[in-house]
């Protein structure tokens, strides 16, 4: 395990019933970097992402073998609760999913259930979080309007603000821009690059150019196996594995 490793997967196998979804994955995710997970649908990349904050716990018949270490501690074999884990490892989904509440309440929700009640304190968290994702000026005069009235891109950035409001260490993003227009996509990409100073980011994307633009490391999954991983600038210019080359150049998938 390298010094800068945030997550380490060791001999990780995951089964959904009889289906072997992740096959002996060994992979390190570096802190304060953006790691992109790519591969065709059903290759295991989202499944792998979900093992990092135990989202697979909800799936019936899911069995996990091997180790997933967060800062050297196995997240499946410690007394750390899934709730505590998910505070440290936040997640942003493909479809923006704001709560049917005001902008303010969306951001204050996490801190509130973590016991922060003082209004001034919550006000500050809301402002800081919205500033962090670059939407404070846009939203400050309508904090108490419903989040459902926002555009898709605004909703997604609000969801990211909601995620960072509980001060996570890692932010997982599962195709965060696939439902967004190009301008909103660029804003999320810029935000992700800005965010890596503070957080470790793992992003699943079907957009090769996006992985190429924003990630430091890229991992290519195929049929549950981790086929190739490497510095993004090398992997997209000169992939070592023929399957990686065929996939990223759009020749199968």
């Amino acid at each position: 395990m390298s010094e800068n490793s945030k997550f380490t997967a060791r001999n990780l196998n995951l089964y959904y019933g009889d289906f072997h979804a992740l096959k002996n994955i060994n992979f390190e995710i570096e802190a304060n970097k953006i790691t992109a997970l790519i591969g065709p649908s059903g290759c295991g990349k989202s499944t792998f992402l979900k093992t990092l904050n135990r989202m697979n716990d909800f799936v019936e018949g899911c069995k996990i073998e091997g180790d997933v270490l967060l800062d050297g501690k196995d997240i499946y074999k410690t007394d750390m609760s899934a709730i505590e884990l998910r505070q440290r490892v936040g997640m942003v989904f493909q479809q923006p999913n704001p709560f049917p509440k005001s902008i303010y309440e969306n951001v204050a929700y996490g801190p509130r259930i973590r016991g922060i009640k003082k209004k001034s304190e919550l006000d500050e968290i809301v402002e800081t979080s919205l500033r962090e994702v670059g939407i404070w000026d846009e939203f400050k005069d309508r904090l108490h309007k419903s989040a459902l009235g926002l555009s898709g891109g605004q909703q997604q950035r609000l969801c990211i603000a909601r995620t960072v409001a509980v001060h996570p260490e890692v932010v997982l993003m599962d195709e965060p821009t696939s439902a967004l227009d190009p301008i909103s996509t660029m804003k999320i990409e810029d935000l992700a690059v800005e965010m890596k100073k503070k957080y470790t980011i793992v992003i699943v994307t079907h957009n090769m150019q996006q992985a190429n633009r924003i990630s430091d490391t890229t991992a290519f999954f195929l049929l549950g196996e981790l086929i190739e991983t490497g510095a993004t600038k090398d992997l997209f210019l000169n992939p070592k594995n023929k399957k990686t080359e065929e996939y990223i150049t759009g020749r199968f998938g």
Binding site: M208, Q209, N212, F236, L237, N238, P239, E245, I248, T249
Partner: peptide, 9 residues
């Protein structure tokens, strides 16, 4: 086509 990898090279 936004070529990458060997195509772009």
């Amino acid at each position: 086509q936004q070529p990458i990898a060997s195509d772009w090279r």
